[in-house]
Amino acid sequence: MACLGSWPGQHGRLVRLVDAGQQPDVSALPAMQRRRLSRLARMAFHVAWPLAEARPQLPMVFASRHGETPRTLGILTDLAHNEPLSPTQFSLSVHNAIIGLWSIQRGDHSEMTALAGAGDGLENAVLEACGLLHDGAPAVLLVIAEEAPPELYAPFIDDVPFPYAVGLLLTLGDDWQLQLNRGDGASSEWPHALNLVRALCSDQPTLQHHWKSRQWTWSRNEA
């Protein structure tokens, strides 16, 4: 995984980003293909595209706990008002719509999976990706993405301080271990996938994440 030197390391100050409704740049795609991409899809594409370069066949695991909450609310609002549903919105309302669009636009028929895995979706997605690797895939693309919830849902969603997406390209190796044990602990205040990125970009040797009674321990193997 490539790290930018300017990224804050383990001791860098965390900055809570302000969501001003910016749209990630996906201008590499023709306009006719861009038009059905929600912001969540654009975020996912934006982090995934460079990792998939020169890999026309790349299995993918996409994980999002909350998915496209703005779209869901829009459809439910139309329903509540007895308005006919937009066929486009409806066709994109399933959790695997983003990987479907990805597959179509890249012409990649590799195995792709969309997960919604509670508070430890990242770890469950890594588990899924490891399965694909051990099944013979040379590399697996992992994308974690969350969209800011609409105001109506905001009181019920406390783990998306701002919209974010993380893309990882996983290959078999011995650099890191991920272990699951039974254990309780505070879940991190920061989106966990971002904690992992910080750990990967620094010398941080271990990282722990708790959800319910599950304790996930990431540890860097000694070289």
Binding site: P84, S86, T88, S91
Partner: peptide
């Protein structure tokens, strides 16, 4: 223009509305 079948449904709905 290159529209597809989902566009056909969407455009049909928009025209009716």
């Amino acid at each position: 223009l290159g529209l597809d079948s989902v566009d056909a449904l969407e455009l049909g709905l928009a025209i009716q509305k």
